[in-house]
C-alpha cells in the first residue's frame, strides 16, 4: 500500500483519526480567518512544527512540506513580484521589469497560506494509517463502499505501476519509439494506454465476484477488525472545533457580503 504514514508510538498517533482531521481543518480555518496575512506562518511555526516533534515525525513532516511548497513558492515570487499591475510601490527595477512591494507581499501571503493548508493535512496523514483513517470515518457514518474504494486504490496503484512498466518494456521490445518529436511521443500513448486500461477492465469481473463472495452488498452492520478508541473528550473537542469553524466562516461570509 502506498501512503505517507510513518508508524510511531506518539500521543498524536493515538488520537482518533477523525479528531486529527477535524483539528487540521480547524487550524486551516483559524489561519485563513485571522485578519493578518502572516497568521498561517505563525501557526505553522508555533503549532504544526512543535506537534510534528511530539508525533516524532519532524523529518518527514518538514521535508514533505517543503517539497510540496517549493514549486508554488518559486512560481509565486517570480510571477507576482514582477507582474503585479495593481501595485504602485516600486522596490527595484531590472531593465524593463519592476519589482512591486504589493506583489512581493501577495506572493508571501499566498506562499504561507499554501504552507499551512498542506502542512495541517500532512501532519494528519503522516500520523494516521490510511486503513485506520477509513475505519474511523466509517464508524462515524462514512459510506463503507467509499472507504473500500479509497483503501483498494492505495493497494492497486503499485500493481498498476508494475503492469505499466511491463507494457512499456514489451512495446519498446517491439520497436515502439518513446523518445523523439512530440508527434512520435503522442503516438506512443495509444499502445501504452490501451493494454493498461483493457487489462484493468478485465479485472473488474474477478474483483466483483471476490467482493460478492465476501458479502460486500450486504446491508447489515459489519464488524471491524480494528477497535478504535474514541474518548468522550475527543468527541466534545471535535464538536467544539466544528462549531468554531462554522461560526468563523459565517462571520467572514457576512463581513464579505456587506
Amino acid at each position: 500500500m502506498i501512503s505517507l504514514y510513518q508508524p510511531r508510538d506518539s500521543p498524536i498517533h493515538r488520537l482518533h483519526p477523525l479528531t486529527k482531521l477535524t483539528l487540521s481543518f480547524g487550524l486551516i480555518a483559524v489561519a485563513l480567518g485571522a485578519p493578518v496575512d502572516w497568521a498561517p506562518l505563525l501557526l505553522y511555526v508555533a503549532v504544526l512544527v512543535p506537534l510534528s516533534y511530539v508525533a516524532q515525525v519532524p523529518g518527514p513532516f518538514l521535508s514533505t512540506s517543503w517539497r510540496l511548497l517549493l514549486p508554488f513558492a518559486i512560481s509565486l515570487f517570480l510571477i507576482q513580484s514582477f507582474f503585479f499591475p495593481e501595485g504602485t510601490q516600486i522596490l527595484a527595477r531590472l531593465g524593463p521589469l519592476t519589482v512591486k512591494a504589493e506583489g512581493v507581499r501577495f506572493a508571501f501571503a499566498s506562499t504561507v497560506r499554501i504552507l499551512l493548508i498542506t502542512g495541517a493535512l500532512l501532519l494528519t496523514l503522516l500520523t494516521t494509517h490510511p486503513g485506520l483513517l477509513m475505519t474511523g470515518l466509517v464508524q462515524k457514518g462514512f459510506p463503507p463502499p467509499l472507504a473500500y474504494v479509497v483503501v483498494t486504490t492505495l493497494q492497486i496503484v503499485p500493481q498498476m505501476r508494475e503492469r505499466a512498466r511491463t507494457i512499456i518494456d514489451a512495446q519498446r521490445a517491439r520497436g515502439l519509439e518513446t523518445q523523439g518529436s512530440l508527434l512520435v511521443r503522442m503516438r506512443a500513448l495509444g499502445p501504452l494506454v490501451g493494454p493498461l486500461v483493457l487489462g484493468a477492465l478485465l479485472d473488474v469481473e474477478e474483483r466483483t465476484l471476490a467482493l460478492e463472495a465476501r458479502a460486500f452488498s450486504a446491508t447489515s452492520a459489519k464488524t471491524s477488525l480494528y477497535d478504535l478508541r474514541d474518548p468522550a473528550a475527543e468527541r466534545i473537542a471535535r464538536w467544539a472545533v466544528v462549531l468554531g469553524i462554522a461560526g468563523l466562516i459565517a462571520w467572514r461570509l457576512l463581513e464579505a457580503l456587506q
Binding site: 486504490t153 486500461v197 477492465l201 479485472d203 474483483r207 460486500f216
Partner: peptide
Amino acid sequence: TTSTYALIPLAIAI
C-alpha cells in the same frame, strides 16, 4: 452496483 465499486479503484489507479 458491486461491479461499479470494483471498477472505481481501477479507474482511479488508471
